[in-house]
Design a binder for these strands. Structure first.
Lengths: 335, 335
DNA sequence: CTGTTAGCGCTTTCAT
DNA sequence: ATGAAAGCGCTAACAG
């Protein structure tokens, strides 16, 4: 593979000049510029990104640490970040934490070894304190998704999860439901707690007693949703609606409801959360709270572009508002 | 961030020695080794991956070029490759081609600028000839997923798509269906053509005439599947089963079938292809041909580990056999 | 077993 | 406007 040296020789100029035309830095006469460009083409020259980083002390890489690389949420996130970064000529380097504190730390270490210029994190296991520490270390700027940490709120991009839970339950109430069950996410996750808070809030504002027997903790997975749904039926306290803390669990719940010979939404209304791509493939099509993950990923990328690479004219929105997407799984309460 | 130089000073040894303990190369006395390790810990030293690559002329990065980073197929692929590579201490760098020839080429250029040690490709738009050319250039070894290119078959990892189509249609035949419609993928994609071939083959081996009016070309997306399904109904030639070239289209078709007041599988049986994660969330649960994409991604990663990094004891399987996953959407033909 | 030294390909002063 | 030269942090001969 050709190097800058060979290009300079072929073009009859010095290394420095070739570097200048590559980076559009300093003054280069039109004549030499074209000569260099020509030589680069001729040799099919690709600058060595590694060498460039080393010399420039700037890698043009940003590290993305997520729980998983796949799935409807993380997949969309990762994809939108990569897209935005790439359009700005930056490279996204990914690491997976699998919701495990040790692995998340290890992933961050790995990325820092890659000398990334910035970090975008969407992690569960790492504590607020740890993230704050990282944030206060000026070595690598970072932005955290789905977190809201005091002391670094300008570097947090999150969804108003409480509002989301509220909106879902409120929609059920507006449809006439009074006995509304809730399948929560794992309570050691902040977003799960917030979503549940929202549910409770909606109940309170409608003066409906919150009945502990009507909420059961799931695991954000289909199986957990199914299990929770069975538990709900077994508890034998009547309800006409169930809101789920995410769509996966709603899918599991849906299956169980149907297997009891009940109709959705005729007998039981159902609302999910996240509005993943396949929510509309379900039958009936799932009403769900939208998690604008692509927009939020894009925003995280912009945060980096603005705060690390000095891009102008970018406004950062730290907090996003979830909106209910009405489909067919929630209907008026049976009389 | 600490450098190797500072570590060497703190440990009271030379650069070379530090390098040796980092890489487990050459002989180092136990005493100095611990001293160096200690110094590294003390300084929280992370080797600079860029510098290391430059010097060693080996980046430990492998470039992954896929059409998309997200979605049930690509997401799973990307995730499995990253996992396998990472466990071997290699770094996956991703680029998206969006099924566009120009972007796919550009992505490859980009990755080669990153000086990746190898390339794993899952692309549609690039021609066999172009890939062969790349393959014959020893600069960057490459392995191609979902392709079967003469002249580089040992570097291809693919699914027997024809067999998959055959298996699906054969299952319908075994259930007593004789009039079987087919919703194909875009005919300029090789895998779509192969899957259709399989369908025809199954028909032939059962001595069923292939009726051109019963196959319609879709686009591998839900909307295309719905459109194709409507087209099929409009053509007014009766059928009791439809096999779809992928699950997305099956989801779209399902919706249309139901909207005509028909039952699945009572009136019409349906089989999908790919067996994506949400296939079992559909109602009825979708019977589908499994595309073992994770295994294949893992295999591609192993190919690189073996052929580029010299890992031992890895056997490479170039061709995978699809298997039908029986669920509820396909049943016996109505009498 | 350990140290010295010459690069890897590029950027970036500093001269000219 | 262009060139010379000193590194960036690390590896890999080569000596000793």
């Amino acid at each position: 593979m050709a190097t800058i040296y060979e290009v300079s020789k072929l073009a009859g100029v010095s290394l420095a000049t070739v570097s200048r035309v590559m980076n559009n830095t300093g003054n280069v006469s039109e004549a030499t510029r074209t000569a260099v460009l020509q030589a680069m083409k001729e040799l099919n020259y690709r600058p060595n990104a590694m060498a460039r980083s080393l010399a420039a002390n700037r890698s043009d890489c940003v590290g993305i640490m997520v729980s998983e690389l796949h799935g409807p949420i993380f997949g969309a996130l990762v994809s939108s970040i990569e897209k935005e970064l790439r359009e700005a000529g930056k490279i996204a380097i990914f690491a997976c934490g699998h919701s495990d504190a040790a692995k998340e730390k290890e992933g961050i270490q790995f990325l820092s070894g890659m000398k990334v210029d910035a970090l975008i994190l969407h992690v569960e296991a790492l504590s607020d304190e740890y993230l704050l520490e990282l944030h206060d270390d000026p070595a690598t700027p970072l932005v955290a998704l789905n977190r809201d940490i005091r002391g670094m709120q300008t570097a947090c991009i999150n969804l108003d999860n409480t509002l989301g839970g509220q909106v879902a339950t409120r929609a059920m109430i507006d449809l006439g439901h009074r006995s509304i069950a809730y399948i929560a996410g794992p309570m050691d996750w902040q977003d799960a707690r917030e979503r549940l808070d929202g549910h409770r809030k909606a109940l309170l504002e409608a003066s409906i007693d919150v009945d502990g027997r009507l909420v059961v903790e799931g695991d954000y997975h289909e199986q957990g949703g199914a299990r929770a749904m069975r538990e709900l039926f077994d508890r034998d306290v009547p309800f006409t609606a169930v809101v789920c803390a995410n769509d996966e669990m709603a899918a599991g719940a849906m299956d169980v409801i149907r297997s009891r010979g009940l109709e959705i939404p005729g007998d039981i209304s159902l609302i999910g959360y996240d509005n993943v791509r396949w929510a509309r493939y379900l039958y009936p099509k799932l009403t769900s709270v939208n998690y604008p993950i692509r927009e939020m990923g894009q925003m995280a990328a912009r945060w980096v572009l603005k705060n690390v690479y000095g891009a102008r004219d970018l406004t950062i929105q730290n907090r996003f508002t979830p909106q209910l997407v009405y489909r067919d799984s929630a209907g008026v309460a049976p009389v």
